[in-house]
C-alpha cells in the first residue's frame, strides 16, 4: 500500500483532487437548484408531496445506469467528467429538495408572521429570516449528500473516469488488496474532512444555536 503510494504519488494525488471536486461540485449545484424548488414546496403546501416524491424517485435510479445513460441524454463523450457531475447533481438535488423544504417549514408560524408584519418583502424574508433559520436542517442534508457523493464518485471508475475509485479497480485486477485498501482509506479521509468542513461552516453560520445549547 505504502509502496504503491511511493511509486505513484502523482497519480494518487491527481485522483484524490478529481474525486474531491467531483464530490463537492454536484452538491453546490444541487443546492443552488434545490433552494428555489424547496421554497416552492414550502410556500405552496400542495406542491410538497409531488415535488418531494418526484425527488425521492430520482434517487432510486441506479448510479451505474445513470452514468452510462448520461452521454446519450447530454450528447457528451462517454469519458467526459461532465456525465458524472450531472448525474451526481441529480442525486444531490433529490436529497436536498426535501431538506430545503423541511428546513423552511421548520420556521415557526409566529416568526413568519412577525417577519411579514415588520415589513419584510417576500424575497427579503426568504433571505434574511427563513433561510438563516433553516441552515441547521439544510446543513444536515448537505452532510448526507456530500458523504454519499464521495462514495458514488468511486463507481465512476467502472466507466473509466479516473479518481480514487480507480484504486479499487486496479487493486481488484492486479489482486493487490493493499491498493484497494488505500482507496478505501483515502475515500474515508476525504468524506470525514468534507463532513467536518460542513459542520464547521454550519457552526460559523449559526452562532445562535450554540447560545441556545449553552443556556
Amino acid at each position: 500500500m505504502i509502496n504503491y503510494l511511493k511509486n505513484n504519488p502523482d497519480n494518487v494525488s491527481s485522483w484524490f483532487f478529481t474525486h474531491l471536486w467531483m464530490s463537492v461540485l454536484p452538491v453546490v449545484i444541487g443546492l443552488i437548484i434545490a433552494l428555489p424548488i424547496g421554497w416552492v414546496a414550502s410556500r405552496y403546501r400542495w406542491t410538497y408531496p409531488p415535488i418531494t416524491n418526484l425527488a425521492g424517485l430520482l434517487y432510486t435510479i441506479p448510479s451505474l445506469a445513470l452514468f452510462i445513460l448520461m452521454p446519450s441524454i447530454l450528447g457528451t463523450k462517454i469519458l467526459s467528467p461532465v456525465n458524472m457531475v450531472v448525474a451526481l447533481t441529480v442525486y444531490s438535488l433529490a436529497l436536498l429538495v426535501r431538506v430545503v423544504a423541511d428546513g423552511l417549514n421548520s420556521v415557526a408560524p409566529d416568526i413568519r408572521a412577525a417577519a411579514t408584519a415588520m415589513g419584510f418583502s417576500g424575497i427579503g424574508r426568504f433571505l434574511r429570516v427563513d433561510l438563516p433559520i433553516a441552515v441547521p436542517v439544510i446543513t444536515a442534508g448537505l452532510r448526507v449528500a456530500t458523504v454519499s457523493n464521495v462514495s458514488l464518485v468511486s463507481v465512476g471508475a467502472l466507466i473509466g473516469v479516473p479518481q480514487l475509485g480507480s484504486l479499487f479497480t486496479e487493486g481488484f485486477s492486479r489482486y493487490i488488496p493493499g491498493i484497494t485498501l488505500l482507496g478505501i482509506l483515502l475515500c474515508l479521509a476525504l468524506a470525514l474532512v468534507l463532513d467536518a468542513l460542513i459542520v464547521l461552516g454550519s457552526r460559523v453560520l449559526t452562532p445562535w444555536q450554540r447560545a441556545v445549547a449553552k443556556r
Binding site: 415557526a108 409566529d110 416568526i111 412577525a114 417577519a115 408584519a117 415588520m118 433559520i133 441552515v135
Partner: peptide, 16 residues
C-alpha cells in the same frame, strides 16, 4: 407595515 408596530403572543423574535 413598516409604519405600524406589531407585537404577537409568543413575541415571534428572530432566533438567529
Amino acid at each position: 407595515r413598516r409604519g405600524i408596530g406589531y407585537v404577537i403572543q409568543h413575541a415571534g423574535l428572530f432566533p438567529h
